[in-house]
Simulated assay, not measured.
Amino acid sequence: MSKLFFYTRDQFFNFKSDQMSAGFEFLSMSKLISSQKIESLEVSQQYYVDISSIVSFVKYDDSQLFNFEQLFNSFGENISFICDKVYEKDIKYIFRYIFDEFSDVEVERDEITDEVQEISVKESSSVKKITDLDDAELDLFFSKFDEGLYGHECFKEEFKELVTSFRVFNKLGEHKILSLFLMGDSGIGKTEVARTIHKALGSQSKLAKISFGNYSSHDALNSLIGSPRGYIGSDGGELLKRVNESDVGLILIDEFEKANNAVFNYFLDILENGKIINSQADEYDANGYIIVFTSNITKENFTSKISPELRSRFDYKGVFNLLTDEDKKKFVRFRVNQIITKYYQLISEDVPDKLYDTIISEINVSQFKNMRDLNKKIKDTFVANIKP
């Protein structure tokens, strides 16, 4: 059993400078493991080993805990351990059989320049969230959302009620993130919900989207939040990268059922605390965000695949059904008009007469169950009718 010291981001560099002047060396636990340097540590040298980078991995994959407990017990008395204070609550429980004493480092905070503070405020205020809209802007948002999403009328009404409640309780500090879990067959409009919200918020950037269909299951968490410091190719992960590239408070998590338990636990933590934290201990405040989770699983498989703890955190759980033929016709009319307008503005003003009516007449919506297939048919028909 040993002692663990917590530092804040504002303290770290002053603390490191003071302790290095006193003869200590600083190492990260992940670097020690990846480079296999543990056995080469000098007994006469005093070290501070920073364990911040391993907390998330042990927290979301507790099968590693046994190995780490053995590892900590192998260190000598010349090793002291430190950790970023953002992990204090988790680490006191996870490593309860490793550390018997906890303390904060004693050092002055690093100076934070006005320039850095201004940048932080600018980055935070540049993200437009559903909680930021005034009443008139909210009415316009719902109008655009209703117009942009075809069918699913019951969901639209429930979504309005969810947003109204979320805005109230978010202001009261009781509800940080609005989460939707949408189930159903592929191509029936689940991801379109996120795209429509994205457009209705007036975004000028890419949608922050993570698709677990592109991840290998055993490495999903590393891809999501980055590998620990010291590992080859370590970075901040795809999630924060996508979030930082977006200008609205919305995240789409696609094919969520293909993630593993470590990822499920990670998102449970996000929904509980409203914070996105990567392997580099970078923290992003997601308060006021909407997160849309989509999945191709059935309602029956939902309870067996998703843990009760995570299920209870979703504000909305719903099954999307196939659109009616009338909804499909509305979509076709909208999409054909959209494509013709773009073609006229960006490519050529030479548009064949009655092109709109011709395309509409050649598409039998009853033949299509999948909206992606229907959209492909619209594109193919358009191209066929503008060929000379």
Rank of each mutant, 00 (worst) to 15 (best):
F302S: 12
N14T: 08
N67R: 07
N375S: 15
N265V: 03
I38L: 07
E69C: 05
N364D: 15
N301L: 12
L172D: 11
S304F: 07
F72H: 08
S361G: 06
S63M: 09
S307M: 09
D50P: 07
S246V: 04
G318K: 13
F256A: 03
Y344F: 14
V127P: 00
F95D: 01
G76D: 14
K241N: 10
D132E: 11
S211E: 06
F334C: 10
D114W: 06
F181V: 02
F334A: 14
Y289M: 11
Q64K: 14
F145I: 05
L182V: 02
G226Q: 04
I290R: 02
I386N: 03
E118V: 06
D269H: 10
M20W: 02
Y97Q: 12
E39N: 14
E161L: 13
G226N: 06
V351P: 00
F142C: 01
D146E: 15
L250K: 05
F142Q: 01
N260K: 07
G288D: 01
D254W: 09
H218S: 15
S35N: 13
N244W: 02
D134F: 05
G189D: 04
V248K: 10
N370K: 10
E123M: 11
Y289E: 03
T196M: 00
I251Q: 01
P388I: 10
D134V: 08
V43L: 11
I359R: 01
K16Q: 15
S17A: 14
G318W: 02
F95G: 00
L162K: 13
D135M: 09
R229W: 00
F293C: 03
E101C: 08
E309P: 10
F66V: 11
S103G: 07
G173N: 09
